[in-house]
Amino acid sequence: MANLKDIKKRIGSVKNTQQITKAMKMVAAAKLRRAQDAAVSARPYAEKLQSVMSNLAQREDGEGHALLNQRGTGRALIVLMTADRGLCGGFNANVSKEAERYIRDNEPGFDAIDLMIIGRKGRDFLKNRVGEHITKVYEDITSDATYKTAQLIGQEVVDDYSDEKYDAVYVIYNAFKSAIEQIVTVEQILPIQPKETEEVQEGSVDYIYEPDRGEVLSQLLPKMVEVQIFRALLESNASEQGARMSSMDSASRNAADMIDRLTLQYNRARQAAITKELMEIISGAESIK
């Protein structure tokens, strides 16, 4: 029978842990709200831009823009979005594993695959697995992703693509479905694939373009890449908070179970000790007779 003091100590330490996990859960819940709001308010912009672009692409007659042209398979870049912190369940591992799997599966198809990682945890996970593919790591940018951040990454990606350093660019991130569900998503961001809209060509009305269509297109397309990265960053951030919240919630619950079990054990041990003492006293008294 474990001794009383040990069990008591154990209960104390589990209680401490529970307090921490509870606090983390609350923090994550508050952050989740904010992250979710940000992700939702970014949606109209992305949707509008998408529809403007589809409109534009539909009227595309022949001469495409560099960012629209399929260049076939050459070098590919994968932008992987993970978190800087752990303790959020399978969040980092799932998305990192997907990146690893993607690289292994597609390695034969490309001349080379480079990996740009956002978030410390992704780097830690993949360093020893596919370290040779990692070309760039960004840290400490996910927690308060601004449009500026996305713009910088977007510009870098577009520049590399325009310089023909890469022929295709993908993003892998956790899409936010609900607080307890994240979906690992692979999206191609370059070359841009305009969504086919169901709209019939009733829009044969000629648009006026200012300054001219080529110019409009060449300013709009890089924007599209930035917006997609921005959206992925926001979704990834919301997913991270959601994952942390639910994993901390179950950690708190596990701690509560453990405390219950230990308390029971403690009471039993205490009772056993009392019984033992009583027996000693009685048998002592008995022997004096």
Partner: peptide
């Protein structure tokens, strides 16, 4: 003004 022809500009 209302009734403007379709236009896309930066």
């Amino acid at each position: 003004l209302p009734g403007h022809t379709p236009l896309l500009t930066t």
